[in-house]
Amino acid sequence: MSVNALYTDLSGYYDLMCVDIDYHAQSNAIRRLHQIFGNKGKRHLDLACGTGPHVRHFIDEGYISSGLDINQPMLDIAATRCPEAHFSLQDMSSFEVCEPLDLITCFLYSIHYNDGQEKLSACFASAHRALKTGGVFYFNAVDKDKIDNGLFVKHTAKQANNTFTFRSGWHYGGHGERQSLRLSIEKTNAETTQVWNDEHPMVAVSFSELIALLVPTFEVHVFEHDYETITPWDALSGNAIFVCVKR
């Protein structure tokens, strides 16, 4: 099953799959960082917005928010959740906007959906073009050199008479610019068990490579992957928050 097919078929279950995510804490943390580093503007775009939960929080805090994704069923749900927002079907590596932005966000490691460093560089260029001077581009990332292929996260949730078990984990072969997100979804009820397994191709990049791609056009600040406190990255952990201010 293709990547898009899996997400299209299960778009109605996406929020269930992400039920453990604290969207409010994540949105508030980036809003605080935007207050510190940003240009005080309120025009916002969320890349790979999915069903729009982050967009909802930014709207509730007074932002003029929009979102883009490559999956129309996700955007249909997002439009219902956030009728005030504009959503567009676009690839984050080559997106365009109608008006300059003050803040661009990309949550949930979705920056890695740029399949290869060429597309990643194109995404950074698109974000730079879309931002006003002093605007902020936020994303979180994982360092390819610190991925443990044996680790995965798992949670279970119930919906109606069904039990869902979700598993996901990073995998990197140790060389090159491709890593993958391995995903397993199991749906069980009294009659049947259905299982979807997929492997999403993603860009593999070290933090030193990321910074090198960004510094020609952005002032780059890197923080620990902690949405409760604002702590500079210790240069040791393999997950981090990047706050990039347009030069």
Score class of each variant (00 low, 15 high):
Leu181Gly: 12
Ser208Cys: 03
Phe164Lys: 06
Phe166Lys: 11
Thr163Leu: 02
Lys154Tyr: 04
Glu99Asp: 13
Ala127Leu: 01
His112Phe: 00
Asp198Trp: 07
Gln159His: 06
Cys123Asn: 13
Pro100Asp: 08
Val136Asp: 09
His155Phe: 00
Cys98His: 10
Leu214His: 00
Leu151Tyr: 11
Lys187Ser: 15
Pro216Leu: 02
Phe152Thr: 04
Phe152Ala: 12
Tyr109Asn: 06
Pro100Met: 01
Thr165Met: 06
Thr193Ser: 05
Tyr138Pro: 06
Gln159Met: 05
Thr165Ile: 08
Gln194Asp: 15
Pro201Ile: 00
Phe139Leu: 05
Ile147His: 13
Ala212Leu: 02
Phe218Ser: 04
Glu186Gln: 12
Ser93Phe: 08
Leu214Phe: 02
Gly173Val: 01
Ala125Pro: 10
Asp143Lys: 03
His155Cys: 07
Ala130Met: 06
Leu181Glu: 15
Gly116Glu: 11
Ser110Ile: 08
Ser93His: 06
Val195Gln: 13
Asn161Thr: 09
Tyr138Lys: 00
Ile211Phe: 10
Gly173Glu: 14
His171Ala: 13
Asp115Ser: 05
Glu186Ile: 01
Asn161Gly: 07
Thr105Tyr: 00
Asn140Val: 07
Gln117Ala: 06
Phe95Lys: 02
Arg182Gly: 08
Phe152Pro: 09
Ile111Tyr: 00
Gly135Thr: 04
Thr163Met: 13
Tyr109Ala: 05
Ala85Glu: 08
Gly173Thr: 03
Glu118Gln: 15
Ser93Asn: 10
Lys146Ala: 14
Tyr138Leu: 05
Thr156Leu: 05
Phe218His: 02
Val97Phe: 01
Glu186Gly: 02
His86Glu: 10
Arg129Pro: 10
Lys187Tyr: 11
Lys119Glu: 15
Leu210Val: 08
Asn149Gly: 07
Cys98Pro: 05
Thr133Arg: 11
Thr165Ser: 03
Lys154Ile: 03
Asn149Val: 03
Leu101Ile: 07
Thr188Met: 14
